[in-house]
Nucleic acid binder design. Structure first.
Length: 498
RNA sequence: GGGCCGCUAGCUCAACAGGUAGAGCGGCUGAUUCUUAAUCAUUACGCUGCAGGUUCGAGUCCUGCCCGGCCCCCCA
């Protein structure tokens, strides 16, 4: 910004203090927020009318000033919206008016007291008799008409985005409501919210590279969790029957429009249930959520209609791939799988069967638009899921795909400790062969299973991605208040400090 | 990690084919007692992302780097 404007504000602050006015006072008593003023008086007033017997006090940030010499119109913005204010020399008095004229700038927080009226054009307005500066601003706000468009500033200085772009603030309110809804939904069905460690000695529950950190007190390296899964299942072993955890996971992987290194998930576990129960739960929870946020079950996402009406389509991974690629992931040999993958221009770094199947799946996943449960994943790519009751080559697992994106992942949880140990060993082999995303052996988890875990259904949902659909935004960054951004260069930071 | 595109005033954007860097909003000063993208007058705003190079001359052309966006690879 021009240094000049900032200098000007600093001088005004000095001057205010000389006049005995504190530019950063401690509190202000509001009788109404802007929304409450509208509720209380909008119906009671007609254009040109005043309600001089009433008194309201409200506060907010000055977003616009329209000066007319002996009167000033201004716009005050608070969390709930905006309200116009009007101050006139005649009613406020020479001194109060002059101080407003001299010292109130766009960007300042002020508190006002006065009575409601409606201008002759019908705008509900507070006629100001007294005002207080609540916080002086030193910097000029982004432009009022075009808003703030620079993605870099939007993500790095989210506070400016929230001030300047109302729809952005609204989006994060929706996110908050969605999360509250999910908690309420599960709480009302008897689930308990729990907290498990984020600092892990061994990571598990997903295939991803972890962040490594160091614990000084014990002089050991630790990992940030990539998923809470293994701890939550330990709780089922311990006797909890219905638990969930909603929180951050951390994966040291690529960043994209659908990947942020830290992201929010919810995992839900229910004893004596299987993946069919989890499907029911998922379908019910998400449809009710969509209805709660959106009003109906058809949403428009980036110009495409997505229909959440129940029941959702269910298709096995094997059938879906066979239908679209004419290859059978159970019966055809590795060579045939590889051939199909390569015929679609994909390269494969590891020719292990599990990877080939995942590649095949990636080729067709994008074709799914409406919510679809894709079921019965091969055992090779599902090391924590229980084998399918009808075919031991498969697992009882599903992913919920919407608009080609994985939104949820669930299984009948593997509770056979011997099988689990074998699966971990297989993963360990893959790690040894260079697959950094293969899962780590978690011996304590196997020991827990040896004490006996009841049949259990488990479910994980990517909250950020779900909120993307609810708010119709193209990037995961638009639903994360402070998405990960590269730190600015040293030069620039020194400039900022100077 | 690879490829493509972008970076101009606090913000939103201009600047032909290489020839003095502009506008609107915002800021300063002034006028204006019902405005609402208020209006009118006045004025200041710039290391054109950074560092080099080509050229008489670079916002513009070339090279490298920073940051961002998009695509590819990969985790959800």
């Amino acid at each position: 910004m021009s240094l000049e404007a900032r200098q000007q504000r600093l001088q005004e602050i000095e001057e205010l203090r000389r006049l005995g006015i504190e530019p950063y006072p401690y509190r202000f008593e509001r009788t109404h927020n802007t929304e409450e003023i509208r509720k209380a008086f909008d119906q009671r007033l007609e254009a040109g009318q005043t309600l001089e017997s009433e008194r309201v006090s409200t506060a907010g940030r000055v977003m616009a000033l329209r000066k007319h010499g002996k009167s000033i119109f201004f716009v005050l913005q608070d969390f709930h919206g905006t309200i116009q204010g009007y101050i006139r020399k005649k009613e406020a008095g020479d001194e109060v008016f002059k101080r407003f004229d001299d010292f109130v700038n766009i960007g300042d927080h002020i508190g006002i007291r006065g009575f409601p009226f409606k201008s002759k054009t019908g705008e509900l307005t507070v006629f100001v008799l007294e005002y207080e500066i609540l916080s002086k601003s030193l910097r000029t706000l982004p432009e009022k008409w075009h808003g703030l468009k620079d993605k870099e500033i939007i993500y790095r200085q989210r506070y400016l985005d929230l001030i300047a772009n109302r729809e952005s603030l609204n989006r994060f309110v929706i996110r908050s409501r969605a999360i509250s809804f999910i908690r309420d939904f599960l709480n009302s069905r008897g689930f308990l919210e729990v907290e498990t460690p984020i600092l892990h000695h061994v990571t598990g529950g997903a295939n991803a590279r972890p962040f490594v950190t160091h614990l000084n007190a014990l002089d050991i390296d630790m990992y940030l969790r990539i998923a809470p899964e293994l701890h939550l299942k330990r709780l089922i072993v311990g006797g909890f029957e219905k638990v969930y955890e909603l929180g951050k996971n951390f994966r040291n992987e690529g960043i994209s429009y659908k990947h942020n290194p830290e992201f929010t998930s919810i995992e839900v576990y229910q004893a004596y249930a299987d993946y069919s129960d989890m499907m029911e739960l998922t379908e019910e929870m998400i449809t009710e959520l969509v209805r709660f946020i959106n009003g109906g079950l058809k949403i428009n996402y980036q110009g495409v209609e997505i229909d959440f009406t129940r029941p959702w389509k269910r298709v096995s991974m094997r059938d879906y791939i066979k239908e679209h690629l004419d290859v059978d992931i159970l019966e055809d040999p590795d060579e045939r799988l590889l051939e199909v993958v390569e015929s679609h221009g994909q390269e494969v770094s590891m020719k292990e069967r599990g990877h080939l199947i995942e590649k095949l799946w990636d080729l067709v996943e994008d074709g799914i638009v409406h919510p679809t449960f894709v079921t019965d994943y091969p055992v090779e790519i599902s090391p924590l899921a229980k084998r399918h009751r009808l075919d031991p080559r498969l697992t009882e697992r599903f992913e919920l795909i919407i608009f080609g994106r994985e939104i949820a992942n669930a299984f009948s949880e593997l509770n056979d400790p011997v099988d689990q140990l074998e699966r971990f060993r297989r993963q360990a082999q893959l790690r040894a062969a260079g697959d950094e995303e293969a899962q780590m052996m978690d011996e304590d988890f196997v020991r827990a299973l040896e004490y006996g875990m009841p049949p259990t259904g488990g479910l994980g949902i990517g909250i950020d991605r779900l909120v993307m659909f609810l708010t119709d935004v193209p990037s995961i960054r638009d639903v994360i208040l402070f998405p990960l951004v590269r730190p600015q260069g040293r030069e620039e930071r020194e400039d900022e400090e100077a």
